[in-house]
């Protein structure tokens, strides 16, 4: 099959960028989108041109490295999938695809399709943990945790930190990411002692990183490769307010 690609090329952080057109032919519909990028890059290399820089690693949808907007949709057209899990059979023969990096002030472009997502790490460093030193833990079965609770915590904890939520949001908001982590730890009994402090610190770090605010449209939820629910944002909003009420 044949595809026309318009790919964002930008040599470096402080350089201007532009969309460039590439035509690819002889593609196999069973090829993954990133394998198509490999094919393109090998071709560019042979032509003596610089290949397109893009992030990818595990190629099985769990590391959260890959990050491209295909036709304005982070991770492409499929629900519950990362870019690496998009296969060419999702597109029509001869289709034109515009491929751009995540767009958000908090994720500056480093080169081509590579952005700097370290803001997420800074939020985690501010409070995305349970403070337990190695060796301090009691027996794992000492604290029963209901199956439902464990499942809910898992659903939140499944976030891969890819940043698609921010990329899809009209406001470049990171609330789904932060809410997922706040909820994962806030749902579990182990997370209770630091619950108030955690949500406050993470929200403050989120604001400091230059993300926008939630205006309740839930584009984040629609593109999340792990289908994390925007309900968690409601939960975080509640947790945040309650964290300010003393003795509660």
């Amino acid at each position: 099959m044949k595809l026309h690609l318009k790919i964002w090329r930008q040599p470096g952080k402080d350089h201007p960028g532009k969309l460039e057109m590439y035509d690819l032919d002889g593609l196999n519909p069973d090829m993954s989108f990133l394998e198509m990028m490999d094919v393109l890059n090998d071709r560019l290399t042979r032509e003596g041109k610089e290949p397109v820089a893009f992030e990818h690693d595990c190629r099985e949808g769990i590391c959260g490295s890959c990050a491209m907007a295909i036709n304005g949709e982070p991770h492409g057209p499929n629900d519950g999938a990362t870019t690496c899990q998009v296969y060419l059979r999702s597109f029509k023969d001869g289709e034109t695809l515009t491929v751009e990096p995540w767009r958000a002030r908090a994720f500056p472009v480093l080169k081509d399709l590579v952005t700097d997502r370290s803001a997420f790490d800074r939020i985690m460093q501010a409070g995305g943990f349970i403070s337990v030193n190695t060796g301090q833990a009691p027996d794992a079965n000492a604290m029963p945790i209901g199956k439902e609770t464990a499942e809910q915590a898992f659903d939140a904890a499944h976030c891969i930190g890819c940043g698609a939520c921010v990329a899809a949001c009209r406001n470049g908001s990171a609330m789904l990411f932060v809410a997922a982590k706040v909820s994962h730890l806030g749902l579990l009994p182990q997370g209770q002692p630091e619950r108030k402090q955690r949500v406050r610190r993470m929200v403050e770090a989120m604001d400091a990183a230059g993300f926008g605010n939630c205006s309740n449209q839930y584009a984040c939820e629609a593109v999340c490769p792990k289908e994390i629910s925007a309900d968690l944002i409601a939960r975080m909003n509640r947790d945040y307010a309650l964290s300010l009420v003393p003795k509660l």
């Binding site: 349970i130 794992a140 904890a157 730890l185």
Partner: peptide, 8 residues
């Protein structure tokens, strides 16, 4: 250790 850290 993992359970104490919140591994679900």
């Amino acid at each position: 250790q993992c359970v104490a850290q919140g591994v679900p």
